[in-house]
Design a protein around this nucleic acid. Structure first.
Lengths: 123, 123
DNA sequence: ATTATTGTATTAAGATACTAATACAATAAT
DNA sequence: ATTATTGTATTAGTATCTTAATACAATAAT
């Protein structure tokens, strides 16, 4: 695994995102076992606690399951993954819309502007 | 002026946003003079430096002009205000789209999801 | 029963960011 | 010319967040 870790944001956040993506994309299939915290930490050249913190978030969201003394595994439940994906998206969107609203933009306006920006990017 | 200052985000950021909104909404009309840093700081119950930092951002964006020893005023240029408003929106949107992309969402998907969320909110 | 491996809790160190205190500089007002 | 008012620079204190070091606890493996 190639870890992309920049220093402009917390390491653990980036780890969480990247692992989450690996789950979404099937690098870690449903029900498969994860390496130990220590191994993953070493692989990412990071302290075990940092990796643990990254994993804790994924556990909160129900993506991975912890077996006290025999490691962690990805959930068997495909819906869980889908739900997590959508939940994540909605969190981002809500946060974003709130900001925009705070800045005085109507939701309609926001949609229009995004639509235009997306169209422009395609050129 | 009623300042809404929570402690979950930097004070200066919140000040900037609120002043910006006041400019957008005409509370401070084009060309009008702003109170002194010290007065505004006292009004918001904040250290002058904090208020100054908030104002610095607005100056960067060309919304306000500093007259070395005779205070600050709002720009006369209506386009400046409009540009600032759009710039602000685009910054937010870019940042947002990047995040979503990082999480594995296509821009089309993003538009669809937002569209649905906005529609749901209206119910 | 012992050992090795797993996750976890606690504490401390380090870094960063925010705010405040203070002193300085420039100039408009008098 | 003096004074009061303006913005600004510098420094320091405080808080918070992130990461690491270390020790603990539970149990699967032997």
């Amino acid at each position: 695994m190639r870890w992309e870790l920049k220093s402009d944001r917390p390491i653990y956040t980036q780890l969480t995102e990247q692992i989450e993506l690996m789950i979404f994309s099937g690098v870690y299939p449903l029900g498969s076992k994860l390496p130990s915290v220590r191994d993953m930490a070493q692989d990412a050249a990071v302290n075990p606690n940092t990796m643990q913190r990254a994993l804790a978030k994924l556990e909160e969201d129900g993506l991975i399951i912890t077996h006290r003394t025999s490691g962690r595994s990805i959930t068997e439940d495909a819906r869980m993954v889908e739900i997590a994906k959508i939940k994540l998206a909605q969190e981002q969107i809500s946060e974003f819309l709130e900001k925009m609203q705070l800045l005085g933009f109507e939701q309609k306006e926001v949609l229009t502007i995004i639509d235009n920006m997306v169209k422009e990017m395609k050129n």
